[in-house]
């Protein structure tokens, strides 16, 4: 997949307007970068990228660890540039609950996996949904509600999202 610089800057702009921080990093600097982002206690799902987690993140946590965690780090299979969305696959090692329960969610997406728009992302999803019955969440910014009389970030899901974009 060839992701252009325009697509990446569109992605960064969209995240910015959602109030989502985005830190771009390399394989080598990943652990240090992540260490500076997570709030303790932090848990993480094993990442399908060639990187190492820092000590501060408990990888493959128990459900009890998850309930205590302030940060959840998960892979994102794709980024959607124009909306600032990330796709969170419902993996057997728990990307869905780890991205959902802690107050801070840190999705890790490869820069090369950012696509321009939603139709491209849904195309990719359609293939894996058909072949492997996969599920995914298109997550755009933190969870939110306006039901209590004003917009509040952090309803049932995370209050803050911080995207880590990885150059491989």
């Amino acid at each position: 997949m060839a992701t252009t610089t325009t697509t990446l800057s569109t992605f960064e702009d969209a995240l910015d307007s959602l109030g989502v921080d985005c830190t771009r990093t390399t394989v080598e600097a990943f652990a240090t970068t992540l260490d500076g982002i997570v709030r303790d206690p932090a848990v993480g799902v094993p990442l399908p990228f060639n990187i190492e987690y820092p000590e501060s993140v408990a990888v493959d946590p128990t459900a009890a660890d998850l309930e205590r965690a302030a940060t959840g780090v998960t892979p994102a299979s794709l980024g959607v540039a124009n909306y600032g969305s990330v796709l969170l696959p419902s993996t057997a090692d728990g990307t869905e609950p780890v991205s959902l329960y802690p107050e801070l969610h840190v999705p890790v997406v490869r820069a090369s996996d950012v696509v321009p728009g939603l139709p491209e992302a849904i195309d990719h999803f359609g293939e894996v949904a058909g072949d492997r019955a996969e599920s995914t969440i298109v997550a755009t910014g933190p969870s939110a509600t306006a039901d209590m009389g004003a917009l509040v970030l952090g309803a049932h899901g995370p209050e803050t999202v911080h995207v880590v974009m990885l150059d491989e």
Binding site: S85, S90, S135, V138
Partner: peptide, 11 residues
């Protein structure tokens, strides 16, 4: 533009 979550579940 989009709501925070679109769950695409293939249960």
């Amino acid at each position: 533009d989009l709501t925070a979550y679109v769950s695409l579940l293939t249960p």
